[in-house]
Amino acid sequence: MEAVPLSVPTRQTRRGCATAVVALLGVGVGAVVGLVVGLIAGSTAGLTTGLVTAAVLVAVFLLVSWAAGRRRLTLEGTTVVARTIGSKSVDLRHADRIELLVSDVRGMRTVSVLVAQGRRTINITLAVYAGTGGRELGILALRRLADAMAASEHSAGLVFSQLLVAQLRAEAKGEAAPERPLYQLAAAAPQGKLAQRLSGDAVTRFVASLD
């Protein structure tokens, strides 16, 4: 089956700026640390050590920013595959854990589903909201993900499938973001927490209330 991208639309310019900022931050931190180490040592050997330390820190920052920019998430049948430098996958049919996460960073709330199989864990972003608008996973991706969740052996799979189907129905009706299930879940989560898990019972009750 064709691989379906699982990525919320982003502005490439913003992503590029973020990567550049991380890279520049790495260069700055590396330079400062290298200078401090060199001054403390007060010798040619110390200066060399400082420069090596700076180079290592810069390399680490650049690697992190490069990997973040290359992260790709796809759904292949019922398997979610995350690729960065390497790859890992979770077959939703045999997932050990399926949880809903809501994070709140500077007024932007991100709704995602955490899936795990053994030691492999993947976080799938479903929507990002700010104010009364936001960005959401595409219709095809939501539909395929809902089907894959419905095939899961995990008890939460069917509930999450129903949640995504309800989101699709709201989009098909042309309802504004505040009327859509994912937005309502994000808005209902308590404020003041950077990231929080919503219990399976809470999600089940919410989905039941949509009928």
Score class of each variant (00 low, 15 high):
residue 5 P to L: 00
residue 6 L to K: 05
residue 18 A to H: 02
residue 19 T to S: 14
residue 20 A to W: 11
residue 21 V to F: 13
residue 30 G to D: 10
residue 33 V to C: 15
residue 37 V to H: 04
residue 40 I to L: 15
residue 42 G to Y: 12
residue 48 T to K: 10
residue 51 L to H: 09
residue 56 V to Q: 11
residue 59 A to R: 08
residue 71 R to A: 09
residue 72 R to F: 00
residue 75 L to Y: 01
residue 78 T to A: 11
residue 81 V to P: 05
residue 82 A to I: 00
residue 85 I to V: 15
residue 85 I to G: 13
residue 86 G to Y: 08
residue 88 K to T: 08
residue 89 S to W: 04
residue 90 V to T: 07
residue 100 L to F: 11
residue 100 L to D: 03
residue 100 L to I: 09
residue 105 V to H: 08
residue 105 V to F: 08
residue 106 R to W: 09
residue 107 G to A: 09
residue 109 R to K: 12
residue 111 V to I: 05
residue 115 V to F: 03
residue 115 V to W: 01
residue 120 R to N: 10
residue 120 R to T: 14
residue 124 I to V: 15
residue 125 T to L: 01
residue 127 A to P: 07
residue 127 A to S: 12
residue 129 Y to K: 03
residue 131 G to P: 05
residue 131 G to K: 01
residue 131 G to Y: 00
residue 133 G to S: 15
residue 133 G to I: 03
residue 134 G to L: 03
residue 134 G to T: 00
residue 136 E to K: 05
residue 136 E to V: 07
residue 137 L to N: 07
residue 138 G to Y: 00
residue 160 F to K: 03
residue 163 L to T: 01
residue 170 A to H: 07
residue 173 K to N: 13
residue 173 K to M: 07
residue 173 K to P: 00
residue 173 K to I: 05
residue 175 E to P: 03
residue 176 A to T: 00
residue 180 R to S: 01
residue 182 L to T: 02
residue 185 L to W: 06
residue 186 A to L: 01
residue 187 A to M: 08
residue 190 P to A: 05
residue 190 P to M: 10
residue 191 Q to K: 14
residue 198 L to V: 05
residue 198 L to I: 05
residue 198 L to S: 09
residue 199 S to A: 15
residue 203 V to D: 04
residue 207 V to D: 06
residue 207 V to Y: 04
residue 208 A to P: 13
